[in-house]
Design a protein around this nucleic acid. Sequence first.
DNA 1: TAACATTGGTTTCAATTGTAACCACCGCCG
DNA 2: CGGCGGTGGTTACAATTGAAACCAATGTTA
Lengths: 170, 170
Amino acid sequence: MTTDNNVPQMQMETGTAARGDLHLEKFLPYRLSVLSNRVSNAIAQAYGARFDLTIPAWRVMAILGRYPGLSAAELVEQTAMDKVAISRAVSSLLKNDYITRSEDPADRRRQVLNLSELGWKVYERIVPLAQQYESDLISSLSVEEREQLDGIIEKLMSRAQAWAERGLID
Amino acid sequence: MTTDNNVPQMQMETGTAARGDLHLEKFLPYRLSVLSNRVSNAIAQAYGARFDLTIPAWRVMAILGRYPGLSAAELVEQTAMDKVAISRAVSSLLKNDYITRSEDPADRRRQVLNLSELGWKVYERIVPLAQQYESDLISSLSVEEREQLDGIIEKLMSRAQAWAERGLID
DNA sequence: TAACATTGGTTTCAATTGTAACCACCGCCG
DNA sequence: CGGCGGTGGTTACAATTGAAACCAATGTTA
């Protein structure tokens, strides 16, 4: 892992320097984590209970629904989940007959994945469910706020990504 | 080391966008989750490596630094973590001599927790570190955006909380 | 004050998740 | 061909996490 090589580059906020007082309840990373967990858990519970799906499994279905015929490796790329998580999700989806797996004759290591008939039915039912949650969530925001949030997440995301790529702040 | 989440840049080589339409890349719950994981993992790695602290353990310290003398139950309230997580964090912190535990004579079930000498030293070193990360993150946002984000998170949070309290959407 | 419900906190056990080792296959180079 | 490194994917094992059972002290009710 790219651990010990850091590109120290820090921009201190004016007046943020104070010591000894960390308002956890105002600390952005913490708030993001709480928010994200609440949201994910609620939704996962909604469809997990109905269709016996874990979050990673549902993510795989979501991607396959949009882009059929991917391989596990391509799923890794698209979902940012790791190999093993994908492998497990795939095998549980196979067990449920939500997806099908076929060999790529050109490369016998590769397995082409697709939603099955049943998988499509489930997909078609979950998508609106998921969207309903999202709408409900978003409905608490004004139109401008939605746009703002969109841009903000984008920016935060690339910042955080930079940490991972260039190494941590010193 | 946790999963390294990469920004899912969809680029289609196989398959075509199909029925239903769930852009996982634009799906708010998903984006929140990726963002939050990236941020938390980066920070956790930064102080975990240096001080042998897990995220829950650091949270406990953060709270105790601000509100000394709490009991485990009060920590549960403050952090929204569950009993067990707190219990484990506390015992690992005791092992590291980062906190002290003393009986409340008024109620012998209750244990009063405080940062130790050593704990305070660590605390004083981590707080600025954590704040640096937060500042660095936030520095990618304009001043208006920061205020917007603040309000937006508040709203989303209470929406998501409502799910948990009143039950899920139908 | 005996019984019972509640609260603070820990332990136990099972499920989830991450890391690393692994097998099977491909592609390349000699 | 015959190795050999790299890739797709799975397995094995260890660490984390959560749910529920548990112990001990307190409060409550009769």
